[in-house]
Amino acid sequence: MSGISVAALVEQARAQNPEAMAWLYQEYADRICSHAYRMLGSRQDAEDITQETFIRAFRSIGQLRDEERLSAWLYSIASHLCLDHLRRRKLIAWLPWSGEDGSQERGEDSVADVEETDLVRRALQELPPKDRACLALRSIEGFSCGEIAEMLKCSEAAVWNRLARARAKFATAYRDMQREEARQR
């Protein structure tokens, strides 16, 4: 499907064209998954959020007025899902009476993930969720403050304030973690 515009793919996705949906997923899923990973700090949760983001997006893609804003729209869905997820606090585990024990669950992050980028992710976890969302969307994903305000359904001034708080706290957390890493080496 290379060569077809995003707008055309969105149009086809509106008609539930599986190929168009697959292409859109492959085009955006890694970015959405990475954003969710930074928001949640868990790869498994990020993957779940990514799939749910696209399920919701494909279900309501008819509501997307401006095809060129697909990316921001997907990030908006993912961000809200992440914030919802972070509000949850309980863990319920179901096990079969006999048989499987849930051991097929994937573990958390692999050792390879815990590298330099991990420092950023860990420092981001120090921020309040909405501040984290603002900083990730602005400084990593490159959205404008206006776009973020629209995504998170708040004012642009609120985004500026959250970014100011987030940068100050992220700087402190990142600096402290860097020192700690250096001390342990």
């Binding site: 599986p18 949906m21 697959a22 997923y25 492959q26 899923a29 890694d30 970015r31 959405i32 998954c33 990475s34 954003h35 990973y37 930074r38 790869r43 990020a46 993957e47 990514t50 799939q51 399920i55 494909f58 993930d113 980028t117 950023v120 992710r121 900083l135 990730a136 400084s139 990593i140 490159g142 990142y174």
Partner: peptide
């Protein structure tokens, strides 16, 4: 540093859930 932060790969696209 933030711009350089690497992402992760999403799970493979699945025709079934699609």
């Amino acid at each position: 540093v933030l711009r350089r932060a690497q992402g992760i790969h999403a799970p493979s696209f699945s025709q079934s859930w699609l």
